[in-house]
Design a protein around this nucleic acid. Sequence first.
DNA 1: GAGTTGTGGTTGCGTTTTGCAACTGGTTGC
DNA 2: GCAACCAGTTGCAAAACGCAACCACAACTC
Lengths: 150, 150
Amino acid sequence: MADDGHRSYCPINLSLEIFGDRWTLLVLRDMMFANKRHFREFLQSDELIATNVLADRLKLLVEQGIVTRADDPTHKQKAVYSLTEKGIALLPIIVQIGAWSSRYVPAAKKLDRRARAVIRELQEGGPALWTRAMAELRERHLGAAARTPA
Amino acid sequence: MADDGHRSYCPINLSLEIFGDRWTLLVLRDMMFANKRHFREFLQSDELIATNVLADRLKLLVEQGIVTRADDPTHKQKAVYSLTEKGIALLPIIVQIGAWSSRYVPAAKKLDRRARAVIRELQEGGPALWTRAMAELRERHLGAAARTPA
DNA sequence: GAGTTGTGGTTGCGTTTTGCAACTGGTTGC
DNA sequence: GCAACCAGTTGCAAAACGCAACCACAACTC
C-alpha cells in the first residue's frame, strides 16, 4: 500500500512504527513518572538499558517530535531532554498500559506496594486526573511557554 | 533485579515484554475491529505480516492467555482464535493509541475518511463507548459463557 | 594543576530477532 | 482425481539487540 516507508496508514500501525519496541515507552515512563531528564539518569532504571540503545531511542524520539534536546545552562556538557505536547499526550496510553498490566499480568503483583498504589490512584482518578498530570508535565517540560499560549 | 526472566516488575515493562513489538497489537486490532479469527485472515491486512511471524505471535498470545485457539467444527483444518477477557481488556489501550496517532502523526491523515470517522467516534464516545464495544467482543468471543457468569 | 569523577555519547562484536520466500502435509469442494 | 484452501514450518539473509570497552571533554577536589 504505502510506498513512503510506512507499512500502512493505520494509526495503530503508525504508532507501532514509532514506539513499537521494548524500550521507547520505558524512556517516556521515566520522563513522566520519575522526572528523568538526563542521559545518565535513564541508565539507572531497573531494566538497565544499554547506552547505545538509549542514544538511538532518544535520537528517534527527537526526530519524531516527541522529545526535545537542549543544552543544560548549568553544565556545558549536560543535555536536557524535555517532552513536547505530542509526548505529553502519550500519558493516557502509558497509564492504561500500566492499569492493564497490574490487573492482568501475574508478575506485576511483585511490584512494591507503593508503586502499585500510584498506579491504582492514576487509574481510579480517571481522565480527569490524567489531565492534571499532563498539566503538571507541561509546567515542567514546556515551562513558561505553556502558560502563555499564543 | 528480577531473576525469573523479567527485566523488572514495572507494569509498563511487563506489558512491553508481551506486546512491545511491531506486530502483536496489529493482530489484536484485526481481531477487535475487523473481526478476524482465522490464520489466513490475518495475512490479508495492509501490513502484510509474514506467516512465520504471525504463527509466532499467535502462539505467544495463547501462552499469555490473551487469546485462545480452538478447532473450527465446520472445517477440520481450520483454527479459530478468540479473545479472552484479558485480551478484550486491551481495547482501551488500542483505542488510545489510535486516537494519539490520528491526532499527532502526520501520516495518519492519509487514512481514508471512513476509517478516521470510526477512530473519532470511538474517541469521542469515551470510556462508556469502550465498555459497550468490549461487551460486544465478549458476546462474539466468549459466547454464552459471558452471559451466564458462575 | 594533577587526579578523580561526571558528562553524553561511539565503536566493535557476537547473539538474537525479524523479514522474505519457498515449501509441507493435510482437507475440502467440484 | 485435482485444484484450491488450511495452518503452519524451514532455511537463510538482514537488521536489531546486548554487552563491554572506550572517548573527548567538563567540572570539581585538593
